[in-house]
Design a protein around this nucleic acid. Sequence first.
DNA 1: AATGAATGAGCATTCATTCAT
DNA 2: GATGAATGAATGCTCATTCAT
Lengths: 237, 237, 237, 237
Amino acid sequence: MSVGEKEETGGRPADRGRLDKRRAIVEAALRVFAQVGYAQASLDVIAAEAGVSKPTIYNHLGSKEKLFRYVLTETAARSNAKTLDVLTDFPTDPDRLRPALEDLAAKLVDCYCDEQSEAVRRLLYAEAVRFPDLFDAVRASGPNQFTEALAGRLARLANAGHLRVEDPVRAANQFIALVYDELPGMSALGTRPLDPAEVAEVVRAGVDTFLRAFGTHKEAPDAPGAAASGASGGVSG
Amino acid sequence: MSVGEKEETGGRPADRGRLDKRRAIVEAALRVFAQVGYAQASLDVIAAEAGVSKPTIYNHLGSKEKLFRYVLTETAARSNAKTLDVLTDFPTDPDRLRPALEDLAAKLVDCYCDEQSEAVRRLLYAEAVRFPDLFDAVRASGPNQFTEALAGRLARLANAGHLRVEDPVRAANQFIALVYDELPGMSALGTRPLDPAEVAEVVRAGVDTFLRAFGTHKEAPDAPGAAASGASGGVSG
Amino acid sequence: MSVGEKEETGGRPADRGRLDKRRAIVEAALRVFAQVGYAQASLDVIAAEAGVSKPTIYNHLGSKEKLFRYVLTETAARSNAKTLDVLTDFPTDPDRLRPALEDLAAKLVDCYCDEQSEAVRRLLYAEAVRFPDLFDAVRASGPNQFTEALAGRLARLANAGHLRVEDPVRAANQFIALVYDELPGMSALGTRPLDPAEVAEVVRAGVDTFLRAFGTHKEAPDAPGAAASGASGGVSG
Amino acid sequence: MSVGEKEETGGRPADRGRLDKRRAIVEAALRVFAQVGYAQASLDVIAAEAGVSKPTIYNHLGSKEKLFRYVLTETAARSNAKTLDVLTDFPTDPDRLRPALEDLAAKLVDCYCDEQSEAVRRLLYAEAVRFPDLFDAVRASGPNQFTEALAGRLARLANAGHLRVEDPVRAANQFIALVYDELPGMSALGTRPLDPAEVAEVVRAGVDTFLRAFGTHKEAPDAPGAAASGASGGVSG
DNA sequence: AATGAATGAGCATTCATTCAT
DNA sequence: GATGAATGAATGCTCATTCAT
């Protein structure tokens, strides 16, 4: 235990290879599950992809089902942590609210649209009947926490006079809905790359609507007239 | 649909049984696919559930994949038709906009949360990678059409001075997002029954936010104080 | 259904091939089970040996365990029927008892030492722990019935004054023990061919002892002095 | 076995643990083999049962097959030694023959029906095809020796005028057959406990028949009327 | 000497699909 | 047109065995 490198696993040096293999298995499994789903994923393929033999998967993770559960919860946890992180930078008492919200929304949809995030979402949808507990677990550890945290921020902003929200949790959910809801359709559920410009536009429009609904008079569109993607003028006033 | 209604199920009476079998197969397949997913669904089970023999499925639909495609597109088409229908009752020049929108939203989420609708959604998510074209086809025939139609209504309302919308398509998407987005999480992706009261509350809150963002001064909450789950009046200061 | 051949199965002509396959499977399974035992028998090998595909075995017999049960009980039933048959020829009031008993014993051990009989015995021993019910079933349908039947004959002989038996069932068991017990050891549990002469000698000696114990004075050794295989004279008196 | 009794378990004290492990392995293996058979016995289970790791089994015994051979021969040897021992107490010139024979028979069937003895028998039956040499080895070292020894005793008794036997080996085999043959069926091949009273009855009946066949006039039933389960006196007439 | 970890080979079972009837 | 029967191809999982430690 002289220089380092082995320090990071904490255990005996021999554990190094073991942990590498475990990680390789889990990563390969995520790739394969995301590609073909739970039922169609064959352990042969996962083993090959991970560069290990099939029994090694069983030694490490016990069964296909346990592997699936582990992969999903672990991946979801990682995604969730990243998502929660985007709130860290969010200013408590922002100079200008609109850009702050747009920044937040951009980072948020970035997390939500991340390849692994979308893969987990697809798998949870796909197996909602067979693994209902997985859905609950991931939701509890992820989206719900983010919603709560965001609700807290919104409540503080409201208290500071920057927003008019009555039910912060609902407002938080609506914020997420406004900035994200259109994207899965555009990316074919995370299956096709998104045009960043379109994403930015969706985000801006979502934040705009959010602020129209919950903002105070102090806020004005960032760049007037930039919000419209379809009909240019004509309507309101 | 004037003259022969029965004509559309085939001319000779002998085809009657044939079409019955086909329908039985498709319905059974939907049930089974919805329950266990594409890969885990076995044709034996579907055949048994439909009360036919396995080769009959092949005679009628060619292969498991074609069966899946057919079931999904057909079911989606039915759902979509029902969804589009909810716009029929929507008044062009409503006396009071809020209740009209709430009624519309209620009917809409009813369609979206319908068991078959949710099953199709889960299956599209599950097989988004393997059947990307299915996702596109269903989206094109369904949600997109509804969005467009709703956008048209919103534009007319805007023209009539009832709303202030610049981009009607976007507004339509946001309307849907606001009234529906929270529900899949609540129903575990259509897997668990929803509490109608909670649904109504979500819908009302979504419409409320929508009107705060896009409504004109003429609109006020339907029942003062009923819209929020928290404090009713103004929050901030 | 002109000449015949199909008549013997009774069902539709198409059933012919089906029944042939079933029989082929069962026969192959018996061979393989007898050769390598239950656990080591692979369905691949059985299928190949039977000239059918593996799923066909499942179509016909459901599972390896069911196949085993079926093969054992069916084979045992056949063996048992044959064994019971040897009593048919046994004279009720024999002129001379000794040759009748020797004939009976010879036929009996022929049945007991039959290849299939021994195979079933080995398999029952081998799987007595895993399939205790099989042991009971086969015993009830086979040996017990024979013992009872033989006991009946012995009782009648006793009543007719040809034997002195108090407990006919026990005497029957002892008769079987005397004429058969040595043979499994000699044939390595049915694994090696028996020398017919040795078998005859064992049988004769067994019957001799039986008659010494249960016979009346009327009976005398068939061929005086022929019973001894080891020490020639010297002993008795 | 004069000087060092402990010498035989190895010289250095360090070997103590090694030999303990070996013994633990063999005992565990016997338990597992007896329970599930050769093929179904997994070395993982045996290792766990023995409290050692799997490679340790290989270090000590080389392979599953060698382990099986060793376990069977060693266990058989132990059983055989015990069985041979029952002849030690058998009086050369008994006062009364019947009780002596009954005592001998009781002890003998006790040995034969011992759990380990039956387990070995079942395993030899089960693997008679795969391990024919094992069957021969065990038979040579065990039953044959006992038979020979018993034959010697019977010959001496005959010489002393207590019995009338012409072929002592055959008589020995018949003695064993008479007192033991019924028991495996009653205990489901050693799988179920025997009722001692029934065993005693079988033994007594066996000895009775043996004496009726080979005894001299000097011998009479031990307890008049106790020998038969049916009518005691003469039957026919 | 003992073990944790890894693996190649094998097995029971299932399934989508086809063919003869 | 409908079906019973059959099958090639996979799949999840287990096991005896070996190697590095």
